[in-house]
Nucleic acid binder design. Structure first.
Length: 473
RNA sequence: GUCCCCAUCGUCUAGCCUGGCCCAGGACACCGGCCUUUCACGCCGGCGACGCGGGUUCGAAUCCCGCUGGGGACGCCA
């Protein structure tokens, strides 16, 4: 019998949940779901000075928005202090840890000195064999790491990675204020929580030997490790604010669909043949660490945009309507208490969804449909609504007025007939009508616009444009 | 500086493990054309890569070594 897979995502709540973090979460989630295992969420808030509640809220909101559901947690390390304390005591008892009285300043000085000499800036072991315990002097607790030998990490993605123990030093596991540090709690937690696979960013690879030693020291079996590559900005440096939006919620606010973001991030480093677009089910079914690359990937906003467009095009109108609604409100196209049904909002979507890459872009394009009063593009109105076109618009008014119900085919027939009689190319008729009905020169197909607006509104707007032409003289 | 990781079109990638099917395939972007009532969508075509140098082999993008380049780590941050 094989042990069930158990993975975790362990962000630190010190800022926004960013793109890189989400991809790590996603790979863990996919791995868990693929294997029918469990996905644990753990908040690494051991740094009291930098962790914030807002950040935790944002992490949870981001995960929910993306649909990355977790099976256990969120656990918070600040609530697990007694567990860490116990483990530190265990190490102390077994002489695998010791107090260190060196001051931060001292350490800092030595580090710089070593570095300037071209040496590895590691702890020199001053307190390692010190037997006296000065009273009232603050101290940290260090893990006593082996001086010789080597640690081999069996990385699922990279194979064996060997680190010489002499490259490592005695890391601090307890700060002078008594709180535990990351490298220690991560081991205690992953071990204690029965995590089977640690899938995390490449930047943790060099921490892994220290952690492996800690597992050994604590008498816990090491989990399997898989270090995925990092996401870089266009300049090939680690993705950061400098590269523009990196927080997940910023993408939500820019009108990206969660499915599109997930799909994009999944394809950053993972592939399944030549397939670009995946449903979640397909991702889960096909996900495998074997198809994850080890080289770093540059984040490409253009491709994300394209994917978002694909998702917008293919989304169910009703579903998209729900996602579009907040943007309509934000843009002032609908009021907060518009009282419209999802069906009503969904109505123009089939004619709009081929024309927008983001929801932010889509919202204003629907103004003509939602707003009672048209906002005209002045230049367009001056150019297209003139005396020449007036009689033809009037002809349309008469004809449409006689129709019982508007249909695409009959509308097309009517427009073509009127254009022909006027010896105009269809576009010469359609464009002024478009301006009259939508206020601008770019819109869905003109017959769709008429159908969307309905008989009453269409006639009203056409009549208003005739009035406008008369007034301008 | 030291250690570790990585290296296919501008970008994401397939192929690499199990050499020949690859004078390297797909996608985004870009360029050109078609479609067309506007804007788009769509369709067709084009541009474009195995970092360099050595080996191994009948044969290397694929295996080995070196170099170069990029990234990461070296905190009482995570």
């Amino acid at each position: 019998m094989t042990t069930p897979v158990r993975v975790r995502f362990a962000p630190s709540p010190t800022g926004h949940l960013h793109i890189g973090g989400v991809r790590t979460a996603l790979f863990n989630w996919l791995f868990a779901r693929h294997h029918g295992g469990q996905f644990v969420l753990r908040i690494e808030d051991t740094d009291a000075s930098r962790s914030t509640e807002e950040s935790i809220d944002e992490i949870l909101a981001s995960m929910k928005w993306l649909g990355l559901d977790w099976d256990e947690g969120p656990f918070r390390q600040t609530e697990r202090q007694s567990i860490y304390k116990e483990k530190v005591d265990q190490l102390l008892r077994e002489d695998k840890a010791y107090p260190c009285f060196c001051t931060a300043e001292e350490l800092d000085r030595k580090r710089k000195e070593a570095q300037s000499k071209g040496l590895k800036p590691k702890y020199d072991g001053t307190c390692r064999n010190r037997s006296d315990k000065p009273e009232g002097v603050p101290f940290v607790t260090r893990f006593k790491a082996p001086l010789e030998g080597a640690v081999t990490i069996h990385d699922l993605l990279r194979g064996n990675v060997v680190f010489q123990n002499e490259e490592l030093d005695d890391l601090i596991i307890l700060r002078s204020d008594g709180t535990p540090t990351y490298n220690f709690v991560v081991v205690v937690d992953d071990g204690g929580m029965g995590i089977t696979h640690v899938i995390r960013g490449d930047d943790h690879l060099s921490n892994t030997p220290r952690q492996a030693l800690l597992y050994d020291g604590l008498g816990m079996p090491r989990p399997k490790f898989a270090h995925i590559s990092m996401i870089l900005g266009a300049d090939k440096t680690r993705l950061s604010k400098r590269h523009g939006a990196t927080s997940v919620l910023a993408y939500r606010d820019m009108g990206y669909l969660p499915d599109a973001l997930i799909n994009y991030l999944a394809r950053l480093g993972w592939s399944h043949g030549n397939q670009e677009i995946f449903t979640r089910q397909e991702m889960i079914q096909n996900f495998s660490l074997e198809n994850v690359t080890t080289s770093a990937a540059v984040f490409n906003p253009e491709k994300l945009k394209w994917l978002n467009q694909q998702y917008i095009q293919n989304a169910a109108p009703l579903d998209l309507a729900c996602q579009l609604e907040p943007f309509l409100i934000k843009e002032g196209i609908l009021s907060e208490n518009h009282g419209l049904s999802a069906e009503k909002i969904a109505k123009p979507i089939p004619s709009l969804n081929q024309r927008a890459e983001t929801l932010v872009e889509m919202a204003p394009k629907s103004t003509f449909y939602f707003k009672e009063k048209l906002e005209f593009d002045e230049k367009a109105r001056d150019k297209f609504l003139n005396a020449d076109i007036k009689p033809h618009i009037e002809k349309l008014i008469v004809a449409i007025n006689e129709m019982d119900n508007l249909e695409h085919d009959s509308m097309e027939k009517l427009f073509k007939q009127v254009a022909e009689e006027a010896k105009l190319k269809l576009g010469k008729l359609a464009q002024p009508v478009r301006v009259a009905l939508t206020g601008g020169t770019a819109s869905p197909g003109i017959y769709d616009v008429v159908l969307l607006l309905g008989k009453t509104t269409t006639l009203k707007r056409l009549t208003e444009s005739v009035d406008f032409i008369e007034k301008r003289g």
